[in-house]
Design a binder for these strands. Structure first.
Lengths: 103, 103
DNA sequence: TAAACACATGAACAAATATTGATATGTTTA
DNA sequence: TAAACATATCAATATTTGTTCATGTGTTTA
């Protein structure tokens, strides 16, 4: 059971878009930083030593792919992962990168 | 339990490298095509309508990241996913891309 | 309202990357 | 060995993409 389904070329492209977003160290750092609890843009920039502009640009891409969502709290906007789905996947992959080298 | 572990900056970079490889539609198509059983380079190129050169290039990258492995069978070389680890992740992600739109 | 603060956006540039075409390497068959 | 076949590699090109700097938008406080 659990038959293997080969995605259509369109689905493949969509899937690739998501992977592509995850394929950048800066974006991954942002995502992991927001994993535990929501973080403001300024906090992200300061903690990760990135320019505010750069963080905003990346957050826009991540927002566009529904990987994160932000809600305003007074002047600041706090970003968190979009849903458990995404965070589970990240944690899962993080584990994978640690346990390397079978074979 | 299952405490969230934030990867080091180095680990993040390594993880990103893997995601980056998965973040190309052509490579994803190659991977899914080899999911069920090993496929020769020529078969991949013909079936996916890609030049032989392009397929070889991509396979080299995938090999370098230990995402696929190939074994020679006479003139041809048959490629398959490196381990269950990789294929499980791919199938998993393929499922994710289908079930969209919570919220 | 004006100034200050937090974040978003646009243009521009440099670096990375996918793709192509030609050629090389290695394996088999005549 | 030579020719044919399958795959790999090299060099070059065109596109994509991450980053920066300057500026714009929206919210709060004086």
């Amino acid at each position: 059971m659990s038959k293997i389904t080969i995605p259509s070329q369109l689905d493949t492209t969509i899937l690739a878009e998501t992977f592509k977003l995850l394929g950048d160290p800066t974006r991954l750092r942002i995502l992991f930083f927001c994993l535990e609890h929501p973080r403001s843009v300024g906090d992200i920039a300061a903690s990760l030593d990135l320019s505010q502009s750069l963080v905003s640009h990346h957050l826009r891409l991540l927002r566009g792919a529904r990987l994160v969502r932000g809600n305003r709290q007074a002047k600041q906007i706090f970003y968190e992962l979009a849903d458990k789905h995404v965070s589970d996947m990240l944690v899962d992959m993080a584990h994978h990168v640690c346990e390397d080298g079978d074979d």
